[in-house]
């Protein structure tokens, strides 16, 4: 029985909640139990945003992640807030373009990936969340790439379907990154 307790965090506008929704959707498509709890509040573009995602083989008790297996941090405040909740031996994935220096714990695995830079170079800055998801998938092997593709298709509104190929490309860029 395997459970991934994930926190995705950054600032509003980076697609934090969209990323959580996508991972949960893909997890469901893989046949897993999933929950996704977004932060909601007055935060809009630029404010603090996070969401809790659980993907599990078993029924999920609480949807609230208090001890995370994986934290994705895309801003300095997000890193400061959620680095302490990574379980010992867990994984912290940091957008090293947004977070240039920090004190890191030595009892967790740190993965630094310049997701914003990669997204800006290859398509546009709004795709940095896909690069981060790709980095996560390459480490934990879930959700499957096939389910991710189905989920992106499903979640993109009709008039944005043209973004599908770019989204997949950014996802794969994240998966291929070796820091």
């Amino acid at each position: 029985m395997k459970t991934h307790n994930i926190i995705i965090s950054g600032f509003g506008g980076q697609g934090i909640v969209a990323a959580g929704r996508l991972i949960a959707f893909a997890g469901m498509t893989d046949g897993k139990k999933v929950s996704m709890l977004p932060s909601y509040g007055p935060e809009m573009r630029g404010g603090f945003a996070n969401c809790h995602v659980i993907i599990s083989d078993a029924d999920i008790a609480s949807p609230i992640v208090s001890q995370a297996d994986i934290v994705i941090a895309m801003s300095v405040p997000a890193l400061n807030k959620f680095q302490p909740v990574v379980k010992r031996g867990g994984i912290l994935i940091v957008d090293s373009h947004q977070v240039t220096h920090s004190d890191y714990r030595d009892d967790i695995r740190i993965i630094k990936i310049p997701a914003t830079r990669i997204a800006m170079d290859k398509s546009n800055v709004k795709m940095s969340n896909m690069v981060m998801i790709g980095a996560m998938i390459s480490v934990i092997g879930s959700p499957s790439l096939n389910s991710m593709a189905l989920s992106i298709r499903d979640l993109l509104p009709q008039h944005m379907q043209y973004l599908f190929d770019i989204e997949m490309e950014m996802l794969e860029a994240g998966m291929a990154f070796e820091g």
């Binding site: 929704r21 139990k33 929950s35 709890l37 977004p38 909601y40 609230i64």
Partner: peptide
């Protein structure tokens, strides 16, 4: 409550 309203599940 707010969490049940906002959270997503299958």
């Amino acid at each position: 409550d707010g969490i049940l309203g906002q959270m997503m599940e299958a």
